[in-house]
Amino acid sequence: MSRRPLVLALAAMLALGSPSPAAAYLKFGARVGETVVDVKWTAASLPYFITERGVPGVDAFQFRDVVARAFATWTAAEAETPSFAFQGFTVAAPLSSDGRSTLGFLDRPDLDRVLGATVFLLDGNTGAILESDIFFNTRFTWSVAPGGEPGRVDLESVATHEIGHLLGLGHSALGETEVVGDGRRVIASGAVMFPIAFSAGSISDRVLQPDDVAGLLQLYPAPGAVTRLGGVRGRVTRAGRGLFGVHVAAFNPTTGVIIGGFTLGDDGEFVIAGLEPGPYILRAEPLDDADVEGFFSERTVDIDFGVTYAPRLVVAPAGGTSAPVEIQVRPR
């Protein structure tokens, strides 16, 4: 039997017939043999090192402090995440495959347009994480100014996003872009885990949004949250057939909060958990404005349909999930 571990969306787990229901947030999995395992930390504490290297405007000590704040942002959320323990500085750069999880600056001219990235080294037999490094590309100018600096990328914002990946979260599709002149820019986003960078100088991604926390709770559930929060579930179909990779946004008209998810199997089913109890308006939309590769590996997604709303309000009950709702979409 060939073994071909790959990064997959959780979708793969469903496609392979996992018996356990799964929420619709994207998280990472690795295929081991015929099964897919979550790429997530199981230890209570995660030791990490910082590369002893600065860049203009950011020295290694400032880098250490910013990273600590970004870790604290995630650990402060209502979830049972591992604790993160700074072990010291190292001369080793990120991506050193040395068994240590290392964060630091790295010159990667080949990864043009990539501000930072999280890299996992896995055991190909078990899917266990051996280490996870995060690098920040020195091709960009960075800032640690409390209020941000025009023209400079906010290190804490990018670190917060990348640590979300390190925890096992995939990308969120809660965001919108526009093309202006010769460029493309983000005009709105509802998640730190939205993959596209906002303009340099923005510090918005230092703060988690409900979508981020909902995803985190899926990976690291806290008992209190499980009983307090609820979820919605349903299926997106076209001509009676389930669709894969449909983005479903759950909008709470009372609080204004939006949390997104995806249909993650050929049956078109989705579950969006981590919701405050109450009524939700559900909207299914095609992922046709994004780089799908940044969301799903190995799969193409269904996009031949228009934005469609659920036929009724769906109520998320505390400690449970709603009755299923079917969202029937039509070809464009």
Binding site: L115, D182, S189
Partner: peptide, 29 residues
């Protein structure tokens, strides 16, 4: 209802401008 929700989505989203990881490119870029 559709118009209302669209408006709500945009208003709420616009209040929280975020995103990161890579710089988006236009197609001509």
């Amino acid at each position: 209802m559709q118009v209302l929700l669209t408006a709500c989505l945009l208003v709420v989203a616009a209040a929280h401008l975020t995103a990161t990881t890579y710089l988006p490119a236009s197609f001509n870029q």
